[in-house]
Design a protein around this nucleic acid. Sequence first.
DNA 1: GGTTAAACGAGACGGTACGTCAGGTCTTCGT
DNA 2: ACGAAGACCTGACGTACCGTCTCGTTTAACC
Lengths: 189, 189, 189, 189
Amino acid sequence: MTHADRKRKPGRPRSDQSRQAILQASLDLVREIGYPATTVEGIAARAGTGKQTIYRWWRSRADIVLEALNATATREIPLPDTGSLSGDLLEFLRATFVAGRRAGTVPVLRALMAQAQHDPEFHTEFESKFLRRRREVLVEVLRRHPDELRVPVPIAVDVVFGVLWYRILATHGPLDAALARHLTALLIQ
Amino acid sequence: MTHADRKRKPGRPRSDQSRQAILQASLDLVREIGYPATTVEGIAARAGTGKQTIYRWWRSRADIVLEALNATATREIPLPDTGSLSGDLLEFLRATFVAGRRAGTVPVLRALMAQAQHDPEFHTEFESKFLRRRREVLVEVLRRHPDELRVPVPIAVDVVFGVLWYRILATHGPLDAALARHLTALLIQ
Amino acid sequence: MTHADRKRKPGRPRSDQSRQAILQASLDLVREIGYPATTVEGIAARAGTGKQTIYRWWRSRADIVLEALNATATREIPLPDTGSLSGDLLEFLRATFVAGRRAGTVPVLRALMAQAQHDPEFHTEFESKFLRRRREVLVEVLRRHPDELRVPVPIAVDVVFGVLWYRILATHGPLDAALARHLTALLIQ
Amino acid sequence: MTHADRKRKPGRPRSDQSRQAILQASLDLVREIGYPATTVEGIAARAGTGKQTIYRWWRSRADIVLEALNATATREIPLPDTGSLSGDLLEFLRATFVAGRRAGTVPVLRALMAQAQHDPEFHTEFESKFLRRRREVLVEVLRRHPDELRVPVPIAVDVVFGVLWYRILATHGPLDAALARHLTALLIQ
DNA sequence: GGTTAAACGAGACGGTACGTCAGGTCTTCGT
DNA sequence: ACGAAGACCTGACGTACCGTCTCGTTTAACC
């Protein structure tokens, strides 16, 4: 197990300080002035970097924001284990909805989902680095008791995240305990 | 009591020919080059009108496309009546999914939903003039047999359209007969 | 030889009220907001007429302003007769300079001369309906004592109006009694 | 003692190639299609630059054309020294009139003088960077023999440039040797 | 400890589209 | 037919950002 070839390239290494400043600036701007008004020039100005530094490391605004989102939010995908499917599912929904109610999160999610509709490459990125990871946790939960589900696991996953996103994107309906209970009741038995 | 004074405004009346050309051009362009590349200037050029004529009557690209969508698609919201809830729901889903598979429709839907995430005024417009109308048809169907549903009507509506939109926006999963069957089975009894 | 055919045209006659309102509005606007900001739309709005009414009777803004200028200023081209050339010339210059000092006149003159540089048709119009008429009065004065002039009449005319316009257009120098005396002294003997 | 820190600003330096191309394009267009038809967009297109590059360095079309005029014409303000005032003045007038007859110059002068009537800031610029410089040369010539002049130097200067500009702007009369002789004779003794 | 080379900030560059403005034309209705 | 109102097409405006391209400077690793 050789640990030697860690870093080889000559020249000045990438500045992690700039990276952090750019990620933070992008999140701040999305929350303060909204995603459409968040320009690369604005991020660079706020972060105190040059535009080139941004274009050197990211393909687009959306990639920056996605990376920023994952950097702050990844740690908290819960994988509950209460013993029963209904308990696990309820707990998963509760934890997910709590995250979705945290101020500043939903605007970012809406912006990224919107961007994914216009930019196929970012769609792939968003799917694989964000959406799929969430789904995988739910799949893990549901797989533990497949015979209690009224529909196949993939359908159940679509139902859960479908309702979640539909409320976020379309109706702005609440992500509350009532919804968690209804979904749990609907999917089980 | 004369009811004759229908139209009174002086000046040249609005040209319906320009209006139609603009709506058609917007749909064509979205389908040919995609929504982000569909500019107001492009629509004006394709329609053979001035930009001012567009800005006089619409607030944004998205409003044009929404009006164009409604102009071509409104007629076909089905309201099935087969006698049973499961029959009606299945029929509603089939018809809806057929519309969703028609070439050129899904890209428009994705673009409008994306735009609604950035523009609150358009979100209101899109909700009231498109999304809500679709939901109302489904509510009408479900209301006929409320006691057969496993969840309250509003939850069932969110489930149906949630899954539909989640597949359109996020997973690009198919809108097929299998999905229709699963959803029907899930919601009834 | 019938004298009856004075006026024959059918239809509604031209509204002199609109004509006056348009002329007055054009002068007012030039003085209030300057010539470049004086648009046909602005004149129409201020005069309470339609744009078409303006375009029917004048070729351009400049023609309107020229007509307005001539309508208010033509009456006062002085033709002095003091007995001596120096007296006549001094009097002509004094009267001309007084007119040039009246508030609101110089901006109009500058605007028309400027417009004449861009629009050959208006140049011809301005030359024949304004500039030449002024020159003809001076020629009339100078012709009475040609042998007292130190240069041919046309040169003397160019000198007088040249200095006048150069101060108006270029240096914004004063049109005062001192200048009148210097020019008179220069040209005579 | 090093005086070397002449240039310090960070960032990409201004492109002199673009600057030259813009100046040349503006002169070409004024000569080919006239000043009013010479648009910023046209200059940018002809010069192969972006519009922003023009707006970054000049306030208006007129400033560009003035700079272009000065760049090509400044070198040739003659300062004759023949020994006599009449010789010097005649020579100054001849050289000036030759410049004024060069194809393409008069249209530019007319356009700039016209623009100066509408735009006070440009008037100041035009006065200080063009008109005054020409006057200063003549003043220098006249100052050498002040007692031979029939009027004070400033008046003589106004007479010379007044006639010159009046012919350029108003009568389109010739700038020829006869005029030079008449003016010289008029002003001297 | 000097050389090399990449990343850095700054900011000008050629572009595209924006939304506005006014031009001059046209189409309707009312007088 | 004239006059008002106002919609129409046209085209330029000046601005905002885009993504790229120099600049001179900074920072490590390599020799």
